[in-house]
């Protein structure tokens, strides 16, 4: 079971979190005509470090940007969404 270092709560078990999705996506601005298809359907499948959004649902209810190595499951960093996982 992986552990995620929540920036608000500290290190917690993965079961407290829900995987939300790719943390590198940017939703098209309100009113934009284009980009929605890519936003909804297109995903990279990188091998190596990848930024993901996890929701600490059984904790602070905050979303956490997690940098995880998809090949080794190593949790490289966590941070607040949008601020980059540093």
């Amino acid at each position: 079971m992986l552990r995620i270092d929540c920036p608000w709560c500290g290190p917690r078990d993965m079961v407290e979190f829900t995987y939300v999705g790719d943390g590198t996506l940017r939703r098209p601005e309100i009113g934009a005509e284009d980009g929605h298809f890519d936003y909804v359907y297109l995903r990279d499948n990188p091998k190596g470090p990848h930024v993901e959004i996890w929701r600490h649902g059984v904790g602070c209810r905050r979303h956490v940007a997690v940098t995880r190595d998809t090949a080794t499951h190593e949790m490289l960093a966590t941070g607040k969404p949008g601020e980059g996982a540093s």
Partner: peptide, 13 residues
């Protein structure tokens, strides 16, 4: 609730 949290925290902070 999660949907709202996501949009307020991640999409439109």
């Amino acid at each position: 609730m999660a949907w709202i949290d996501y949009h307020l925290q991640v999409v439109w902070p």
